[in-house]
Amino acid sequence: MNPMSVAVQAGFRRGWIELRQSLTNGMDLFGQFFWPLLTLVALFFMRNGTFEASGVGLGSLALPGVVGMLIAFTGMFGIAQYLALDREDGTLLRAKATPNGMVGYLVGKITTTAGLIGIQVVLVLGGGALLVGGVHLDSVTAWTTFLWVLVLGTLATLPLGAIIGSVFESPRTMGFISFPIMGLVAISGIFYPITSMPGWLQGLAQVFPIYWLGLGMRSAMLPDSAVAVELEGSWRQLETVAVLGVWTVIGLVIAPIVLRRMARRESGANLAVRREKAMQRAY
């Protein structure tokens, strides 16, 4: 059998094992599902509000955006945290020393992260539908739109997570990147329509995939009447495909280059230095 195929198959198996382990570990469960549960609480308090005079419920508007936000947030931070942690404890160095080990490693992390995205989406979608209602996934077209936005959004964000994770050598330094990402969430129309924001913020939000993930999910999950609160009064699905597709291509082109450079820099000496710094912080 082709050695590359063996590495890919091993990566899938590793990913599923890690996913099962993360679902049986208390700390992992807390870390993965704290924010989804917190967003459900926020949706609960928004359930009776409406957007201006449109009559569209804020909770119903926010739920699809929250689903899109979780795809982006978990896609970027999930794999980035794995990379940062595994660089510090030597897992990445061991993968590098194994024939085709980096391929299997990355396939495994992508499998684990994609699985977590799917579980979080099901949790928030099901819980949100019970809490705020307004979800209209009642046709083949709606489900088709939901699935292609989910898949394309995952493909657009996972490579970005790999790029972010390759930049930060320690998981303790990754907190810095959370602030600009949370800022993007705030201006991307997740909890409140983007049409209520200044024009320059609307333009900035449309550069990044978070806004388009939210818009794509709203186009799948909300009735046609809700499109009135969107920019241009349109779901803009072609633009959604284009922007998410561009981010996918950018990520898939840049991520392998960055990861190869990161792997080349990994050595026993660098690992020892990072461990020494970690011990100094511990004491």
Rank of each mutant, 00 (worst) to 15 (best):
L215V: 08
A205E: 01
T173M: 15
L215P: 01
L238H: 13
S178Y: 12
M174E: 15
G175D: 12
V243C: 04
F208N: 05
I187G: 00
E239G: 09
G245P: 05
P180C: 03
L238S: 14
A226V: 13
R236P: 06
Y192H: 09
L231W: 08
L184M: 10
W200Y: 14
I254C: 11
V185T: 04
T173D: 15
L244R: 04
E230Q: 15
G233P: 08
S225W: 13
W212H: 01
L184E: 03
P180Y: 05
W247C: 03
I181E: 01
A186M: 04
V227W: 01
L252E: 09
W247V: 04
W235G: 09
T248V: 08
F179R: 13
G251Q: 04
P256L: 12
F208G: 00
V246C: 06
P198N: 07
I257M: 14
T195C: 07
T240W: 02
W200F: 15
I254H: 07
G245A: 06
I250C: 13
Y192S: 11
I194L: 06
F191G: 06
S196W: 00
Y192F: 13
P256F: 09
G183D: 02
I250L: 15
A186T: 00
L184K: 01
M217L: 10
M197H: 10
A255P: 07
G183K: 06
T173W: 14
A255N: 11
L215G: 03
I210W: 02
M221F: 03
Y211G: 05
V207H: 07
T195E: 08
I210T: 08
I177A: 09
P198T: 07
R218N: 09
A242R: 05
L184F: 03
L244I: 10
G189P: 01
F191V: 03
M197K: 10
I194E: 01
T248G: 07
R218T: 07
F191I: 02
V243T: 06
V185W: 00
G199F: 08
S225G: 12
T173S: 15
